[in-house]
Design a protein around this nucleic acid. Structure first.
Lengths: 195, 195
DNA sequence: TGACAATATGACCGGGTAGTCATATGATGT
DNA sequence: ACATCATATGACTACCCGGTCATATTGTCA
């Protein structure tokens, strides 16, 4: 977490630094992002950065927290009672909605898919666990075949959804259509069919 | 393509340079790979490299060609009459077989998935077209639902198959099991079912 | 006002990168 | 033996990076 010297900064300055971080982390993967660029964009000296944050991971986590606060005001919270497929589509639509007002946020997420640094992998693992739980619940509910490997499904969805956004050139219509296709295919593949 | 000065080199020296390229490109993505590292590992001066190759793309393409020659001696050629799913599994098994004797080759392929540089994207696009054709043929044969978006399927398979190899820590058994699961799910999702 | 602590600052360090170029070496033909 | 040409070489340029640190500035309290 940021140091006290950062916390005590004026809101204006904190905003400037946050914006600079968003700009950099939405352009380059965490691994490639440059602190030099961030300080340049924020208009603060290099030395000051290290008065505020321990390192690159520190400011990245801070940025994610701020984004999380911001995003909750834009998109409706995910309905915890929804099944897995609905949750994924809700998530995809949320990505688009957020992407419309804050395109950078969606890009930050998309860039995590092509970053296999230990730091990013650990972040993703935590986020995936939530979805694994939903799949397991759907299995208990008799909605998803019990023999399906949750981890495989998560990977298919996660990688596809984000990579697609990255490669579809952030074209929302195309993206949503492709995700819908992918979800349909997987749904057909793993759902219990009533015949 | 490499310059004549390279072509004229002794086989031994060419091999050394090829090996150095394989070592570097199997460790870091094309975008991150370092020519300095390659020349260090090959034991040639920096200046010589530029006598042999135009740039990083040049040696990468040369390396791919050499690998392609080498690989055809290891794995059986893909049966052109197979359906899409069999082709994918053949490909996955080929990856493993090649990975057993030449682990670096598989890693080079895996690293392309997390590289979205223009150069790599262009290479992948060409390779994907082959598979799109196979899917289209299966549609005509009545094996795959005609309404399925081939591009979506390709992306699911391609990204998953390679990413999985990257993240499964190159554990062949785990990898093959996961790919089989994924293919099963997609097969269930896109195949025409005889009921 | 003076003293002390908190904060700001950018030059600097050691490391990396791609690519160039003047010079050295070696081979070849006369 | 000499000239010519192909090739070999590594120092060098011009850039990037993360991180440090001595010094300057500002704020606070007595």
């Amino acid at each position: 977490m940021p140091k006290d010297t950062f916390i005590n900064l004026s809101e204006e300055k904190k905003k400037r630094i946050f914006d600079a971080a968003v700009k950099e982390f939405s352009t380059r993967r965490f691994s490639d992002a440059s602190i030099n660029q961030i300080v340049k964009n924020a208009g603060i000296p290099k030395g000051s950065f290290y008065q505020y944050f321990a390192d690159k991971e520190d400011i990245y986590l801070y940025m994610l927290e701020e984004i999380s606060k911001d995003i909750h005001e834009i998109i409706e919270p995910i309905n915890l009672n929804s099944g897995f497929f609905e949750t994924v589509m809700q998530r995809a639509k949320g990505t688009i909605k957020a992407g419309k007002t804050r395109p950078e946020y969606a890009k930050i997420g998309a860039l995590t898919v092509i970053d296999n640094s230990d730091f990013i992998l650990q972040l993703l693992r935590a986020s995936n666990e939530k979805y694994i739980e939903i799949i397991e619940r759907d299995k208990r509910r008799g909605l998803i075949k019990p023999e399906i490997d949750s981890a495989v499904v998560i990977k298919m969805i996660y990688i596809f959804v984000f990579n697609e956004y990255l490669y579809s050139g952030f074209d929302e219509t195309l993206y949503l259509k492709q995700v819908e296709n992918a979800v349909q295919i997987i749904k057909q593949g793993i759902a219990v069919h009533q015949d």
